[in-house]
């Protein structure tokens, strides 16, 4: 297992009003994602616990891709990963960010 935190300063704050979203399961090739609206609008934090060690570069690439596509300022992403592939990680992050765009 490897644990690390990635902090970014997104250009745009997340829209919507939802406080919390939870999706996915920590199973082989899948991941559990918890998204909370708990940070200042200029910040986003990704706390990652992953079963696959040595892939921080890939995580950073997938997260920067997400931040280029969607406004995520103010969101705290917490992940329990069971070795999901980058495309699954990207999909889950997009799902989570999309859920947070819903009204409160």
């Amino acid at each position: 297992m490897e644990q690390f935190q990635i902090r970014i300063e997104p250009a745009r704050p997340a829209s919507g009003g939802r406080r919390l979203a939870s999706l996915g399961v920590n199973a082989s090739g899948n991941l559990e994602l918890l998204v909370e609206r708990s940070l200042p609008p200029g910040e986003a934090v990704f706390d990652i616990a992953t079963a696959a060690t040595g892939f921080r570069d890939l995580w950073e690439a997938v997260i920067s891709d997400l931040c280029a596509r969607l406004p995520v300022g103010g969101l705290h992403f917490s992940i329990n990963d069971g070795g999901a592939r980058p495309d699954v990680v990207g999909l889950r992050l997009m799902q989570g960010a999309a859920l947070m765009e819903q009204p409160a």
Partner: peptide, 20 residues
Amino acid sequence: GPQSRCLSPHLAQFNLTGAF
């Protein structure tokens, strides 16, 4: 719920990721 982060302390000892 998941935001209370009730992760198993045992799994962490085995270096395994948990569930919230």
